[in-house]
Design a protein around this nucleic acid. Structure first.
Ligand code: MN
Ligand code: MN
Ligand code: ZN
Ligand code: ZN
Lengths: 147, 147
DNA sequence: CAATGGATGATAATGATTATCATTCCCATA
DNA sequence: TATGGGAATGATAATCATTATCATCCATTG
């Protein structure tokens, strides 16, 4: 826990293991939206031994610890992304043809204001305890648009 | 095609079959967000013979025709919803605990304005051809909030 | 050192969805 | 009205991502 540079963030932390560090390293190196298999493939070049189950388990672990976010963009496999405190609040643009994911942060202030108002209204109206929101645009990326 | 009350909407329409009508009828009866299995279970009470593969195929068919929308709310199976022209543009509130889905239409005008501006900006910046958008709130519904 | 409990790897199991394929149905045309 | 071909269907196998199981490993504690 302490001694890894992440102590502050954790509450009911398990052990900090080489597997977990290795997975986090992958996200540090190749920043983006990675599937479990992306991570697995990337790791087995260096540390050869890790099993795919450990990748799944630890992606979920890291998400619970707040270090990663998980996204289910339509079909296929889930994507994980590093939660970088530095980076601005952002959402996603997803190509329905090739699956490419693009981050964007346009109009964040306006969006957050709307989101906040909506949350207030909805939690009152439906007694719903809102924890997070997600906004995506779907369409065709520039490569896929040209047939 | 003609004679079924849907002719206007279709472009490269296939046959209109009893299976397709039966599936659409389910949505008319039990309006909401239904999984393939929900539809399958509901149908086999009346029309006994339909196979699950036909349900999947025709849900997809009806979506292509613009009669249904498909949603992948996180884990589990996809949900389909009837596209009702009468109804206002809406988005969803999803309970992360029990999976309950609630429609809402609060602040639609403000939202659509923001969406439009964002679309314009993003399609310019990323040469991305945006076709649709989705906005969800995740959290705990009133039943699930009380432990 | 022995006991404990979490973490791991191999692999089986699951659940949703899609693919395959033989059969049936529909409809335009002869 | 008969018929030929393409679309639709049902049964079922296959696929794909993810989760469950379980024996083993390993670090920590006493
Ligand atoms: Mn992102
Ligand atoms: Mn809805
Ligand atoms: Zn693309
Ligand atoms: Zn709930």
């Amino acid at each position: 826990m302490r001694g890894h540079g992440h102590g502050r963030r954790f509450r009911k932390m398990g052990k900090w293991t080489v597997s977990r560090q290795a997975i986090l390293d992958v996200f540090a190196k190749k920043s983006g939206h990675l599937t479990a298999d992306d991570v697995y493939m990337c790791i087995r070049k260096n540390s050869p031994g890790m099993g795919i189950a450990t990748v799944y388990r630890n992606l979920e672990f890291l998400r619970e610890q707040g270090l990663l976010s998980k996204y289910n963009f339509g079909e296929g496999s889930a994507h994980y992304e590093l939660n970088d405190d530095e980076r601005e609040h952002h959402h996603h643009l997803i190509c329905k043809s090739c699956g490419k994911v693009i981050d964007y942060s346009e109009f964040v202030d306006r969006e957050l204001k709307l989101i906040k108002d909506t949350e207030k209204e909805l939690s009152k109206k439906h007694k719903f305890d809102i924890e997070s929101h997600e906004l995506c645009f779907y369409g065709k990326c520039s490569s896929c648009a040209g047939r």
